[in-house]
Write a protein that binds this DNA or RNA. Structure first.
Lengths: 223, 223
DNA sequence: TAGATTGTTAATCGATTAACAATC
DNA sequence: TAGATTGTTAATCGATTAACAATC
């Protein structure tokens, strides 16, 4: 059951579907702010998001009262409130584990700081990589990973190792006290500790969803 | 409404949530096949997937009757049937648009052939890249993109351009007759043609979902 | 005040699941 | 046949939305 707590917009537990919608509101509001939009009505936001106005109002009302009847929502306030809810001001720290091609790309290209995350380093087993630096991020020996995580109080691990090593690496991370795993290994990790948060980016499942939709729309075009 | 057609397991329209579950069944079954498992019961599969046995049976029964009462599901049959539904045997062809770091990583690392997709080439505007080859994939001038897609009958575009160019690139692809877009641009594309399928991989939304969950579990630990 | 839009309620809609007859 | 597990039904559960009183 969803409850507003005395502080305002925090809730006891958010359904994952709603939580993912929240991230979409946030990125959409972010874009609108850059276009200097000042207020937005639930009807407009709904159109931009491809949803119903009722749903938008219901979603936002879950976390607080951000709107003014008769005027709509103040964009800056709504943006700031969602940022708070999404943890963007929490300054989480992260390490990347498995510095292959994908790992290097993420280190070099992803704007972590925009999302309140500080990338503190990366780990790999390859002697060729250990000691090198990618976009200002040091690659360290995986042997020192656990100590680093514990000593630095790292909360998030970005898991980019090979599929075959994924579960083992995840177990080790959980042992080291990691709180969240951003999982790029195309594997569903089995994590018994319910307090550890896992967020998957499964390239293969995503492509399969695409081809399945294509397959269905080809074999049975909508009338 | 879901209907089985005379051919068996095709259905008129699958809810997207169920479709994404199907991809998870498939990758799980794939892993089990490699472990030489021969049959599996709904209860076991449910445990492995973290769902209820009822849901598993309901999902699978949507597409056909793959199980034997008293014995469970034949893994090879189920795997092959899901492969068919997911379009893995359709031999879709694809081009990658925007050969930046992420594009190069996808070209070089993603096992397209395992998912029934053939990567026919890549496009970029940079003279440095045009004419080069990455893992056997030719990088061509974006100017020839539309003609190539039309002439070769390419169905899928893998969109890896910068955020600012995402919508324009998508419009051009749709104009060229592309049927599906695998969208890595961290932008929700606006596509008016309902027959064009879009599948998003939004790194930023995914990380936000992770930090939001961390934020909630920290401020309000489960009892 | 009059007009507009929110937050919320109550009704609808769809998804999940427990239970069981059918079946291997 | 007896035992086991499926596919399906009916009940439960939760999410979506239309409608509207509250409010700016």
């Amino acid at each position: 059951m969803i409850q507003k707590n005395p502080n305002g917009y925090r809730s006891h537990s958010i359904p994952q579907a709603q939580l993912h919608r929240l991230t979409e509101y946030y990125t959409k509001l972010d874009a609108l702010l850059k276009e200097n939009v000042v207020t937005i009505k639930s009807v407009e936001l709904a159109r931009l998001m491809g949803m119903s106005a009722s749903s938008v109002r219901a979603d936002l009302a879950t976390f607080g009262e951000f709107g003014k009847a008769g005027h709509g929502y103040d964009l800056a306030l709504l943006h700031a409130s969602l940022a708070e809810i999404l943890g963007i001001n929490c300054r989480f720290s992260a390490v990347l584990v498995g510095v292959g091609k994908l790992g290097q790309t993420i280190i070099g290209s992803f704007p972590f700081s925009q999302y309140g995350v500080r990338l503190k380093g990366a780990f790999d087993v390859s002697p060729k990589l250990i000691g090198s630096e990618i976009a200002g991020c040091r690659v360290m020996d995986a042997a020192g990973q656990s100590d680093f995580i514990r000593e630095e109080g790292v909360q998030i691990a970005i898991l980019c190792v090979d599929k075959v090593n994924a579960q083992r690496a995840a177990d080790s991370l959980v042992q080291s006290g990691i709180q969240g795993i951003w999982n790029f290994t195309d594997t569903n990790l089995v994590i018994t500790q319910p307090e550890v948060v896992v967020e998957n980016i499964h390239f293969s499942n995503s492509l399969l969803a695409l081809t399945c939709n294509l397959n269905l729309s080809q074999t049975e075009p909508l009338i």
